Simulated scan of single mutants.
Amino acid sequence: MARVLMKGNEALGEGAIRAGCRYFFGYPITPQSELPHYLARRMPEVGGVYLQAESEVAAINMVYGAASAGARVMTSSSSPGISLMQEGISYLAGAELPCVVVNVMRGGPGLGNIAPAQSDYFQAVKGGGHGDYRLLCLAPSSVQEILDLMALAFELADKYRNPVMVLGDGILGQMMEPVELSPYSGAAELPPKPWATTGTLGREQRNVINSLYIEPEELERVNLRLKAKYQRMEAEEKRWETYALDGAELVLVAFGTMARVARAVVERLRAEGQSAGLIRPVTLFPFPEAPFREALSRARAFLALEMSLGQMVEDVRLAVEGRCPVYFYGRTGGMVPTVAEVVEFAKEVVKGL
């Protein structure tokens, strides 16, 4: 087992390579540009294809083509670039094509800035494109977890024939941390894809990849079938982490970089005699309600922490089901809440209970 220092964006690329991804189509945008830069070197080393598209719109449609042929394929971008990909992502979901889309979030709306943010939560979790579709969405909070979750992302994409989004932010993409790299053989066993458009291969029937259904009755049947798939995701794929949750009266909820801040806040509050804990959703869709039900037996309040004006807080309120007050603290525009300011806000929340 090798221990190396790696940047988050590099871990996204190496994790994809080790998961068997051999096709990358993308376009550079800060703060994720180190990811395509890394893959431009690594893909040829493993017999893969790296292609810098002329735009994000082109990149996502190249992903559609490679996924249709059964390849393990990914793209990456940052907030406004992901916005440009939304039509293609909806097409991929409608055609039931597995792929991985990485979003290393930056400040918005519009072009915003290149500082870290979490304000793409709605876009990622509620579906930024048109139609009744969902993306599986994974939210790592360390460079090691980035590496590990990339393997899971490709597995889930193939399992459900659905796009998977890995949602990070500018801090996670740019930070460097030590990671454990297992020995790598260069081979990855991929599941069979009898639906792929690889020719008839002796079959009488041709495979067709499509998301166009002119008759409303037919499209409704397709949507209901997709809904059943999304319900199976909700039943089987919820993932989360808790910290100091036993007996916690104030429960912080955060994902990604903010979960790291929240953990330090919990430690500070515990050291000062406040009973605090943390729920960190790892899957943002499906959102994990189970730890909230567990925490409700003792919790007097929940506090959602985000680098946004408040988006995940809506899912926290749904999970709590009105049985406990839910507060929110966030910064936006690329500002990152500090441990000290969150601690002070948390103390005010506790005073008001």
Rank of each mutant, 00 (worst) to 15 (best):
P44N: 03
G330L: 07
P163G: 06
M6Q: 07
Q231M: 10
V46M: 06
I279H: 01
S275M: 11
V266D: 01
P178V: 15
G333T: 03
V208K: 02
G277N: 01
A139P: 01
Y121L: 13
S185K: 12
A196S: 09
Y160R: 02
P191L: 15
M74T: 08
I17D: 08
D169A: 05
M176L: 14
A340C: 06
Q32D: 07
M233D: 09
M175Q: 15
E306H: 03
V350E: 02
V208P: 00
D120Y: 10
M233K: 09
G81L: 11
P98M: 03
P192V: 04
L305C: 06
A2I: 06
R203P: 12
S185L: 14
M105H: 12
I146R: 07
G8C: 05
R18W: 10
L305E: 00
Q123P: 00
G273S: 09
E177L: 14
P183S: 09
G199F: 06
N61A: 10
Y329Q: 05
G108F: 12
S77D: 09
G48S: 08
L84R: 04
N207R: 05
A295T: 00
A53R: 11
Y230E: 10
Q205H: 14
P325C: 06
R323G: 07
I171A: 08
L278S: 03
I279R: 00
P191S: 14
V261M: 11
R203K: 15
R232G: 03
Y160A: 02
F255V: 00
V73D: 11
G199C: 11
S79Y: 04
V253E: 02
F122S: 14
Q205E: 14
W240A: 00
R72I: 11
A93S: 15
E215K: 13
M1N: 08
E145W: 10
A319S: 13
N113T: 15
F287M: 05
E234T: 08
V251D: 09
P80C: 10
P28R: 05
D246L: 00
P36L: 05
G20Q: 05
G88I: 07
H37R: 13
R41K: 15
E34V: 09
Q174K: 11
V63W: 04
E155K: 11
K159V: 06
V349A: 04
I29R: 02
V208Y: 06
R317E: 15
A228N: 12
S78F: 08
E294P: 01
P178S: 15
E189V: 13
E348W: 14
V339R: 02
V104H: 02
A235N: 10
